[in-house]
Design a protein around this nucleic acid. Structure first.
Lengths: 249, 249
DNA sequence: TATCAGCGATGAGAATACGCATAATTTCAA
DNA sequence: TTGAAATTATGCGTATTCTCATCGCTGATA
């Protein structure tokens, strides 16, 4: 955790720095808005703590500048001013918290923790196998950079294949994934969808990704990886050594 | 924006509820921890505001329970207690902010806004996608510099689309975001509002920003960016030629 | 190699979801 | 209280997707 503090010297803030360092935060301490901006050019911080009365720039303006340059680091304002209009303007500039001086060290620490723990955890869930990429949030699928238009069921099937890549998925599993358990249609539909998927993937050069496992179901693999590694075999053993899977094409 | 408030009656809180509703938040108000937990079973909230002295469970314990069940909704504690040990224990239970009663309404509103936008990973109160710009504070929307007059529901829908741009949003999500209580209207209303929004956006040249994802919902994107970058979603330029999603217009 | 069960592909009808106009109802300010 | 604006409900034509029957083919097994 890396924290930047912008504050002209005060006993309390110096103490805060020491306390935070003791809690194993990496703390940088600057005294002007200019220095702060400069630090942000070079480093990423998990939290920025600033007072409002910096010598060279009002704190609100500094915050606004940071936000304008798309710096999303949480910002905590430390200030002696208690009037609500100052607080409101700090928040609307883009601050995330406002603590009045003199502050209680324990409360400040707790607030710092609350701000930093929120900063993590938002990441785009994206799955990929070879040339295939699937974004769970936007439900978009691309192959070699080309976006595919998949219908709802097609997408669901591909999603399951990617979520459990490398595993053989039976038609039962697909039915279960696609339908809520009640009024499931015939199993044969699954291979209709698989067929359609294959054709769409193939159109952009992603062939042989969905493999049929005869009598079991289907499996998704990166054909490049599979064919290179001699050791990566089909998930089941066939006594006669015949190639166990067929590729549609 | 949907907010849950847990508080035994107090004048200040009732006033807060009214103020928030007037700012077109969808507000649910319960009086016990049990009710609050129950609401969280059924709905998603953008913010949870609670006091500590609930009749059936200490506030800290309620917060801990919510966090244990992986509810990530920001939590603001409203309490008359000012001692730092109480504050620290609230934060360490999982609270995100702590406001002492009596509170200033403007400051509270500013803090509420800061919390909700941070929960969506947003650091400044202004959202933009292509020619579209939305100010979370003033609730003003502009397209290519022209300000749009949106009704409250239209605004809320656009707000959610922008807060979660690039994600497919189902009609359920819109209903959840727009309405409090249990008396949600019919789902079909969402596409009426979407239709109206599209027409208003179109009037100033912002076409094809809201895309239908068949069988799922809607998604907001910048059509200019989309068609150029191979690396992001491209709903209207699919290389296979099939028009994937339908654009109203 | 004969046989049979499982698989791939297709196309048409059924089922579903959507867009939008319009009507009914509610809300709110004057 | 009343009228205008906003919200909600409804209805229907259209677009899209799903499903299933069918047929020819493939692979497993003896």
């Amino acid at each position: 955790m890396r924290i930047l503090i912008a504050d002209t010297d005060s006993v309390a803030v110096n103490h805060l720095v020491k306390v935070l360092e003791k809690s194993s935060y990496a703390v940088d301490h600057v005294r002007t808005a200019d220095e702060a901006l400069n630090m942000f050019k070079h480093y990423d911080y998990d939290l920025f703590i600033t007072e409002l009365n910096l010598a060279d720039l009002p704190g609100e303006e500094l915050i606004r500048q940071l936000r304008r340059s798309r710096i999303a680091t949480p910002i905590m304002v430390l200030s002696a001013r208690m009037d609500s209009s100052t607080k409101v303007s700090a928040f609307s500039a883009g601050a995330d918290d406002y603590v009045t001086k003199p502050f209680d060290m324990n409360e400040a620490q707790a607030r710092i923790q609350a701000l930093t723990r929120r900063a993590y955890g938002i990441s785009e869930p994206r799955l990929r196998v070879g040339p295939l990429e699937l974004d769970l949030e936007s439900r978009m699928v691309s192959v070699n950079g080309h976006f595919l238009h998949l219908t709802s069921k097609e997408y669901s099937i591909l999603e399951l294949l990617l979520l459990r890549k490398g595993a053989v998925l039976t038609k039962d599993m697909f039915l279960n994934h696609l339908y809520g358990g009640i009024d499931e249609p015939e199993m044969k539909i699954i291979d209709v969808f698989i067929c359609k998927l294959r054709r769409k993937l193939q159109r952009f050069g992603a062939e042989h990704m969905i493999t049929t496992v005869w009598g079991r179901g289907y499996i998704l693999q990166d054909p490049a990886v599979v064919s290179n590694s001699a050791n990566h075999v089909a998930p089941q053993t066939f006594s006669d050594g015949t190639p166990p899977m067929r590729q549609a094409g």
